[in-house]
Design a protein around this nucleic acid. Sequence first.
DNA 1: ATTATGATTAACCATGTAGTTAACTATAAA
DNA 2: TTTATAGTTAACTACATGGTTAATCATAAT
Lengths: 113, 113
Amino acid sequence: MVNHNKDHLDGIFHALADSTRRELVDMMAEKERTVSELAEPFDMSLAAISKHIKVLERANLVDRSVKGRIHTCRLNTDSLFKATEWLRLYEKYWNKRFDRLENELLNAKKKEH
Amino acid sequence: MVNHNKDHLDGIFHALADSTRRELVDMMAEKERTVSELAEPFDMSLAAISKHIKVLERANLVDRSVKGRIHTCRLNTDSLFKATEWLRLYEKYWNKRFDRLENELLNAKKKEH
DNA sequence: ATTATGATTAACCATGTAGTTAACTATAAA
DNA sequence: TTTATAGTTAACTACATGGTTAATCATAAT
C-alpha cells in the first residue's frame, strides 16, 4: 500500500523548493493572476513559467480556471496548510530553544546587579 | 547579488521533499541518533542514508558530532523554523477559509430553526 | 598485528529537473 | 479570412537526484 499523504508532502515540498515557484505563490497570494501576468516579472520564457505553474498545480498549491484563452490561477491553501501541519510537529523544539535563550538572558541580567 | 535566504529555503524545502529524509527528521526529533541507528529501519544501503543525512546537513536541518567512528546526528530546528516562517505568511489565507466555513455552518444552523 | 565495525567516498546507472526554441491549439480582433 | 494573442506541448540540452556496489578511511576489539 502506498502512503498518499507521503507522496503529497513530497510534491508540496518539492514545489516549494524553487524560488521562482515561491515567488509565483507570493503573487497569487496577493490576488489571482493569469499565466502571462505571472510570467511578466521573470527573465524566463513563458513556456518555463507554464511548467512551473503545472508543478504547483500537481502539488495542489494552485487551481486554474480557463475562460477562452485566459487561464486564471489562484492559490489553493490546502497544500500550504498540510506542509505547515507537518512542520508544526516540531514547533515545540524551537520553542524549547527560545525558552532556554530567554532564561540565559534573564540570568545574565541578574548577574549584572 | 545573490539572495542567500532564497538559496537557503531552496535547500530546506528540497531536503524535506523526500519521505525518507522526513522520517530521519522524525527520528532525530525524538532523540539524537548515530548514522547506523538512523539507517536501521530503512530497506536501503547505509551509503544511501549517509547521503540523505548529508542533504539534511547541507540544509542546516541536522548537526553532526563525531567521536571516534561514531557520528551522532541531532536536529537543528533553525531551518525548520525558517521554513515555517515562510509558510506562516500564508496562514491568514486558510484562516480566512476556515472563517468562511464557520460562517456557512452558522447560517445553515440558523436556517434549521 | 589482524580483523571487525561505523561511516564516507567514488564510480556508475536510470530517472527527473529546469531551462531553451519551435511547433502547435484555441480564441479574439482586424 | 487573416492575423495576433494566450497558452501548452514536444524535442532537446545540461545537470541534479536517489539509488546501487565496491573501495577506502578511521577507530575499536581480538
